[in-house]
């Protein structure tokens, strides 16, 4: 299986080298791609020095767009599987084979790394964050009938079909988690939670800072509420029809 490890990164030069070394140790045979989301620091140079292939966006477009740039590359170069994790060290690279394995064995089309399954206790979320995650989990459950244990997880693996789907234009240009899972479920893909380890940030700025959580909650509520009745663009819908 031709697997691509995708690491979207924004101003992570202080933390990304360790993450990339961890990925190399965990999956030495997989291709490693860093999408630099218009960083102001030398994230791209650090990533290149660590042996990763780097694609640089000309300006900052957000984590969702950076990730999608990687999906587009994966589609063009014929990868069968994309594993995605954060550049800030929150996700444990040693858990990549667990996610890859689910896709490789054909057990699911989407493997979502969940920090709340199994023995993972290192992650401590604040009360507001837990409330938000609980709310979106509940909404996703109501709309799809699936209990996602970690709807905001950015640690996930997609099969080739899913990558072709998320590389199309319906994919949101900003925060993309619960609504993406719901749309993927509705498109007929099989989703599966996989226990992974996650750690608190080792420093730097979370993308959930300032007033952005307010917009995040608004966007997710609207997007989750509309996901079942939304048009997903011609190309994405063709892929869905072709699958069913």
């Amino acid at each position: 299986m031709k697997a691509l490890v995708l690491v979207p990164a924004y101003n992570e030069s202080a933390r990304i080298a360790r993450v990339l070394a961890g990925i190399r140790a965990a999956v030495p045979q997989a291709a490693l791609l860093v999408v630099d989301d218009g960083s102001a620091d030398d994230t791209a140079a650090v990533a290149r020095a660590a042996g990763a292939r780097v694609v640089r966006l000309p300006f900052n477009l957000g984590a969702g767009v950076a990730a999608q740039t990687g999906y587009k590359l994966a589609v063009r170069e014929g990868y069968d599987c994309v594993v995605q994790l954060d550049a800030d060290g929150q996700h444990e690279p040693a858990d990549i084979p667990a996610l890859l394995g689910v896709i490789a064995r054909g057990e699911a089309d989407v493997a979502i790394g969940s920090r709340f399954l199994g023995g993972s206790t290192a992650y401590r979320a604040g009360a507001v964050r837990r409330l938000g995650m609980g709310l979106f989990g509940l909404l996703a459950w109501l709309l799809t009938g699936i209990r996602f244990s970690d709807v905001t997880s950015g640690f996930r693996a997609f099969s080739g079909d899913v990558v072709r789907f998320v590389a199309t234009e319906w994919y949101p240009t900003d925060y993309a988690d619960a609504d993406v899972l719901i749309t993927l479920r509705r498109a007929g893909f099989r989703l599966r939670d996989v226990p992974v380890r996650m750690y608190p940030r080792a420093g730097g700025r979370s993308m959930h800072a300032g007033l952005r959580p307010v917009y995040y909650v608004f966007k997710m509520l609207l997007s989750v509420a509309l996901a079942p009745v939304r048009r997903n663009g011609d190309r994405a819908e063709r892929i869905v029809r072709w699958r069913s």
Binding site: V54, R56, Q68, T69, K72
Partner: peptide, 10 residues
Amino acid sequence: LAQELALLSA
């Protein structure tokens, strides 16, 4: 466009 530019220049 930004994505295409990034992929092309890579």
